[in-house]
Amino acid sequence: MTHALELKQIRKSFGSVHVIHGIDLQIEEGEFVVFVGPSGCGKSTLLRLIAGLDDPTSGDIELQGKRVNGVPASERGLSMVFQSYALYPHMTVKQNLSFGLENLRMPKAEIAERIEHAAKMLQIDHLLGRRPGQLSGGQRQRVAIGRAIVREPVIFLFDEPLSNLDAELRLQMRVEISDLHAKLGNTMIYVTHDQIEAMTMADRIVVLRGGRIEQVGRPLDLYNHPANKFVAGFIGAPQMNFLAGSLAGGVLTCDCGLVRDVPFGSAGKVTLGIRPEAIGVSLDGQGDEVIRVENYEQLGAVTYIYGAFANGEKLTVQHAHQIPLKRGQEIGVTLPTGAFHLFGEDDQAMEKSR
C-alpha cells in the first residue's frame, strides 16, 4: 500500500545537538494529522524536513511511495502555511495569490480560475485589491491559506497558523480549516502546541516529546487510553490529576489517604491518574475523601475547583454546574474506580489484570 507520506528512521542534528531521534510514521491519503507537543519537542523541525526546507541527517522521506530526500521544496508538490503568514506587503491579495503560479509560468486563465475558486471558498473575494497591511489577522491568515490552495498541493502543511490570533478568532479559524479539509479532501499535516486544536481538528494526533513519538492515535483514543503519564497529562484540559501511591494484592493505597480495590495485579509504587471531570463533589463533606478549596473559577456552565488533600497533594475538579464556594472550605470528593488510570514507576500505563 502506498502512503501519502512515510517517514523512515528520520533523524536530525544541528551540530552536536540531536533534535529528532529516529522517527517512523505513516500518513494516509486524505488524513488530517496533527503534530502536538511542548515547545522544543521537534514538531516544527519535523514539518520543515517534510517540506524540504531542511534535510534530515539520516533516514528517508517518501511522498506517495517516492523517496524525496534531496528534492527541493518547490518540487515536492507541497504547500506550507506559516505562523507569520509570510505575505508580500507591497502586493495586493490577488498578487500574493498569483505570484507562485506566475513563477511556474501557468497560463493566465488558469491562474485566474484558481484564484477565483480559492477566494470564494475562503470568502476573501472582496479583498483581492487590498494589501496585507489593510487586512485583519484573520483575513491575512485566509490569504495565506488561499495561497496554499491555489497551488493544488498533494499535502498541506500548517506550522502553528493560529498562534497569532485572539481566542475567538482561533476558534473560528479552527472550524474553517476543518471545513476546508472536508471540502478539499487533501492530506493535511498541522503543527501546534495547543492540545485543544489537536483534539478538535485531527483524524489522528502524533504526540511528540524530545524529538520522539510518544503515541499516535485518534483524539479520543489518546484521551481514553494514554500510553504513558506524559500523554495523559498533555491531552485533556484541565490536566489529569496525578496522585502518588502503591499497589499490592490488587489494593491501591494513595498517599492522600484513598484506599481502593483495583483490577491491577502488579505491585510497587504507582501513580493514580484521574481526570478532573470524572470527580464528584459534595458540599456536605460526603465522598471518598475531603479536600480543602484553595481556589476556584466559576465560568457559568462549569466550575473549576483547585483543592488540596490533608497531605498537601493537589486535586483539580471540573464540576459541570454552578456551585457556591469559598476559599478554605472543605468539600467531599468522589473518585470513581472506573475512571482510574494507573502508571508504573516507568511512567507507562498499566494494563488491567481482570
Rank of each mutant, 00 (worst) to 15 (best):
Q95L: 05
L342C: 07
T316I: 10
F82D: 08
M106Y: 06
L247A: 11
E345P: 01
K183D: 01
V302T: 13
G332N: 05
A202L: 15
T316K: 10
F242V: 13
E168T: 14
A320V: 00
V71A: 11
L87I: 12
R170S: 13
S282L: 02
S13L: 06
S163Q: 01
L171P: 02
K66R: 14
A202I: 14
L315D: 00
D159W: 01
I189G: 13
V175W: 10
C41T: 02
L208P: 07
D55I: 04
K120M: 02
I189V: 15
E6T: 15
G338F: 02
E110F: 01
D284M: 04
A112N: 13
M240G: 05
T192A: 13
F35L: 14
E168V: 14
H341K: 03
P226E: 00
G40S: 06
S79D: 05
P38R: 03
V143A: 11
G280M: 12
D261N: 15
A320L: 08
S44N: 08
L169M: 15
G52H: 10
I196T: 15
G285Q: 08
Q134D: 12
E176Y: 14
T334C: 04
D60G: 03
I111K: 11
L49G: 10
L335S: 04
V293Y: 03
S178V: 15
G312D: 02
S16M: 08
N69M: 09
E29H: 13
V270H: 12
K326R: 10
S84K: 09
S58T: 13
I149C: 05
V293G: 02
L220R: 15
M199P: 15
R140S: 02
Q26G: 06
L252I: 09
S58M: 10
Y304N: 08
E75L: 14
L169C: 12
K352H: 00
